[in-house]
Design a protein around this nucleic acid. Structure first.
Lengths: 108, 108
DNA sequence: TCATAATATAAGAATATAGTTATATACTGA
DNA sequence: TCAGTATATAACTATATTCTTATATTATGA
């Protein structure tokens, strides 16, 4: 891997709130509204964190109506594979609200 | 691993100059004077980067006279093991100046 | 079509980071 | 003991990051 890509992905992952976002997504798709509850920060702040993870190629999104579902990309870089292995899945953000089941959760 | 430790180590590694420092040390011990040449930043800046890596438990140091040799710690966390695997060793910083051989390079 | 809901973007403030130069510390050798 | 060398720390500046609130965008459904 190129050092600049390594740096970009490390920077994207090197934040406690974004680590929690990744921990949530280890269980599958999660929608933005659930992240807001879990992190206890504002919705725009969550949106900005998600954008950073997306720009680093770590997560992807799927639109379902007005909702947006985020999930880890399938083909992680070897770097991110290793990092994600060390992040423990976080329960309680696994799309238990209705939004993640309307339109079909990709993991079901 | 604890999320806060994960964050600390990711933050320590998430910088292009510090990635280069780690790349240098993959070949073994390196002294500060060599790092300065490789990175092209001031000696105090290098010193500050090294401190950050040390505080994250990623590197350790050995004093030889007025010189200081830095190297990767042996027992890396699983997180850092994975990250270090992805960083390509950087040649030309492998303590080719005298300082790293006076007092015995730990890798020889 | 319009009000509502979910998410994204913009603008701005507070804090963190990474560099600089100047100075301090610690060791060496004359 | 003292000058010189290697590294660390301090103080400061410039920039980046991460929040907040306000607003824009997009989709839904009455």
């Amino acid at each position: 891997m190129e050092n600049t890509l390594i740096e970009k992905q490390l920077k994207a992952a090197a934040d406690l709130n974004r680590i929690k976002l990744l921990a949530c997504m280890k269980n599958g798709e999660v929608c933005v509204c659930d992240f807001v509850d879990v992190l206890g920060i504002s919705q725009p702040a969550v949106s900005q964190h998600l954008r950073k993870l997306k720009e680093a190629g770590i997560i992807t999104e799927r639109k379902v109506g007005t909702w947006k579902h985020y999930r880890l990309v399938e083909n992680q870089t070897p770097l991110m594979k290793g990092i994600l292995e060390q992040i423990q899945p976080l329960k309680g953000c696994n799309c238990e609200t209705d939004c993640c089941h309307v339109g079909g959760n990709i993991n079901e």
